[in-house]
Design a binder for these strands. Structure first.
Lengths: 175, 175
DNA sequence: GTATCTGCAAATCATTTGCATTCTA
DNA sequence: TAGAATGCAAATGATTTGCAGATAC
């Protein structure tokens, strides 16, 4: 999918430690399942949906259920290690925190493929706007919806915008 | 709600005409219910959710059902007269098209109140980014989440950010 | 030991769909 | 009149919740 790099094992451990610290602080318990869900999540890249995460996590803990995954993702989101996203009408996907801070999304309205980009200047302006209203910016969500070059020409045809993203990954047929 | 102005009757009629043209073009039928839903929608300002819209529309057509409202909103969205939004985990709300073109949202993470803003410069940059990927920008969604001044000081207290927006409308207790 | 967590199944919520009936072109 | 739209109710899909048993502290 988009432009994410797998995290290195030591990075994963770092995030897991942060998770544990959060659990401690909130006097919640550190359990085998929570660790599995968290580590599995950190090990995945890009936009992770609940089904995917559950499937992967079940290789380590077969009886794991949706409820636990949802509950754990909620915790991860609370402590900032995961970020929820929703594109168009799709259902939720989650991203690992590290990525989160500084990238936004460019979505092809024809083929649905999602690219990621960063733009310091836009971020700066966002901050400025927020401050002008007296707000302290916590996070933001910017999604650009457009037509990729192919889609614009060949309306109705397939729209392999991923060919443009430089990470050659054929997931456009999804959904 | 945010900073919307009620549309004038002639503006509403204009939009309704556009809707009819779209229906024509698609060879769909113009019906009493569709008109009622559309006009009711155009007459509401700000972020309209389906329940609200249904409730209002039922004053004119009591047996109107959810299905029709959803189906009509889908049409309105297709032809660009409505825009779907989704903030955080809330369910969908719709905005009338006119508004849509050039404003984005600033949301207080404490009190949930939503302000609107416009920023030409950000728009320009968005366009630039999209073009740099070869995309033609169709629409965008920018949401800034932050803490309003009161919330930052008085954590846990109420967060009447609407007091700042200059349109003195007390809907913060919503949700 | 006790409060918290898990896993299951049942519940909920928003949205969509099937179908008999009603209406528009 | 034929094809499309409505309104109801039932279906769906995603997410949440209740609860009995398992587990962490």
């Amino acid at each position: 999918m988009a432009s994410e790099h797998q995290l290195a094992p030591n990075e994963i451990d770092g995030l897991l430690t942060q998770f544990h610290e959060y659990l401690d602080k909130k006097q919640l318990r550190s359990t085998r399942q929570r660790d599995i869900v968290a580590k599995t999540f950190f090990g995945l890249s890009g936009h992770v949906n609940v089904d995917e995460l559950l499937a992967h996590a079940r290789t380590r803990s077969p009886k794991l259920g949706y409820a636990t995954v949802y509950r754990t993702l909620k915790l991860l989101t609370e402590c900032g290690l995961a970020a929820e996203r929703r594109f168009g009408n799709e259902s939720r996907v989650y991203e690992v925190a590290g990525d989160t801070a500084h990238h936004d999304h460019l979505i092809c309205v024809e083929c649905g493929h999602v690219l990621e980009f960063e733009n310091e200047e836009i971020e700066r302006l966002q901050d400025k706007v927020a401050r002008s209203f007296g707000f302290t910016l916590v996070r933001h969500k910017l999604e650009l919806y457009g037509m990729c070059p192919r889609a614009r020409g060949i309306r109705g045809g397939s729209c392999p915008s991923e060919k443009l993203s430089g990470d050659g990954d054929a997931e456009a047929a999804s959904k």
